[in-house]
Amino acid sequence: EATRALCALGDPEAAGTLVKVLGFNNPAVAGVATQGLIQLGRDIVPTLLVSLDARNYGARAWVVKVLSALRDPRGLDLLEHALNADIAPSVRRSATRGLADLEIDPSLKDQQLQRCMQGLLKAGHDDEWVVRYAAAFGLEQRLRTTTVDPSIADQAVAMLQNLASDAEDARVVRHRAVLALQRLNLE
């Protein structure tokens, strides 16, 4: 209830407190706080960028989720780092989702898009099925909505074909990659 009240304030200064709430190992409360943070909008991105809790992967996953939902280009470094280095699959999954949706800064378009695509290709090789699932989602998303450099687009399609094949262990990842190829009219 206190969390709901804090969210209702709509005050960016409440962001720090809401981030602390994400660390309580209480999914009901964390879900409310996450929605509250997303509603506060991009003003809170600087707060989020300095508030990753190194000892609590549950909290990190929620923070990366908020950052992904806000789609702010300032989150790119953190999302890339989270995908490359975080030991928790839930954090890498949320980071992959973020790279799929991140709004690209028009002045840095080529470079930022390239980094998002490289991240998604890397996620396609992850050990955990849920990160590869997010990669299939993300590659579809980027190929459908943006014009990607042809050499990267070829790599993206090859990755989706690989995720759709018997080389992929998890049936649900194969299903998702097949769906992506269908939606891209590549099958």
Binding site: P27, A28, A30, A61, K65
Partner: peptide, 9 residues
């Protein structure tokens, strides 16, 4: 009211 990671599983 459960973590998204478990919902996905």
């Amino acid at each position: 009211a459960v973590e998204p990671s478990l919902k996905l599983v």
